[in-house]
Amino acid sequence: MLRGVDLDLPAHTLVRIEGANGTGKSTLLRLISGIDAPTEGRVTGRRPRTAYVPERFPAALPFTAAGYLVHLGRIHGLRTREATGRAQEWLARFGAAGHARTPLSELSKGTSQKVAVAQALLAEPELLVLDEAWTGLDTAARGELDRAVVERVTAGATVVFVDHDPRRLAGAVDVTHRIEGHRLVPVTAAETGDGTAGPRVRIEVTGASGAALPPGLPGAPVQEPRTDGTVRLTVAAVHSDALLRTLLTARPPWHITHVSAAAAPEPTPRTAPSGTRQAR
C-alpha cells in the first residue's frame, strides 16, 4: 500500500496528510498512531501518549457516553475522578453534555463523533491523530475541534490530520504531505497557499514599558509596533484563542486593548479555481 515513507513528527507541529481516496491515508494514520505495525521498515522513537479519532465511530458498545469516556480516560492513565471531570468538560465543550447519560448505541452519528473526539482530547495526548474527525460534526463542534487542535499544538503536542476540506485549519498547518503513488511527498507552502487562507484576527496589546513579547507566540502572528506604544498582532483566527491565552498568562501579563476581525488577505493567484477557497 505504502512504500518509501519517511515522515518526521516533531513536537509543536500540525501535520496535514493529503491524498485521493484509497491511496492509503488511513493506513498511514494507523501506522503513525501505533495501531498497526509496518510489514517492512519501522517506526522509531519513544511511543508518545497517543490518541486516535476514527472517521466513523458507530460504536455499538454497552456504555453511556460518559461511561465510555471514563473507561478510555482510565486507559489513558487518568484517575477515575479526573476522567469523570474531563469527560463532562469535553462533552460540554462540544455541546453534548445533555447526552452524557445516553447509551452509545442510541446516539446520533454526529454525537457519536463528538464522543470519539472527546475521548482523544480528554487525556491531553502528545500525539493526536485525526482521520477525518470533522466528518459528521455540526458547525459549532467543527470550530471547537479546530480550536482544540490548535490548543494541543500550542501545548507542545504533534497533531496529524486528514480532512477533505482543503481549508481545514488553514493558516495553522505547519507541514503538509501528500500521498502520491505509494510514496509520501512534502507539499510546499506555496502550493497549499498556507498561511494566507482563512479568516484572521487583529489583536492590539500593550505591555509593561520596555517588555518584549513572549517568544514563540501561537500562530506566529504578524507584529506591527504602533506609535502609541501598543503592538498590533495579526494571526489566523484558529490561533487567536491560544494567542490571547498566552498573552494574558505571560509574566508580566499583556493588556489586550482591542480585538477585531481582520479581512482575510487577498488570495495569491494560483492554478486552483478561486471558488474552492471562497466556499466556506
Binding site: 495501531i35 486516535y52 476514527p54 466513523r56 458498545l61 486507559i75
Partner: peptide, 16 residues
Amino acid sequence: QEPPAARTVAAAVAGQ
C-alpha cells in the same frame, strides 16, 4: 466483542 472503530481507539492508546 469490540467493534473495529472502538478497537482502534483503544489500540492507539495502549497498543493492539
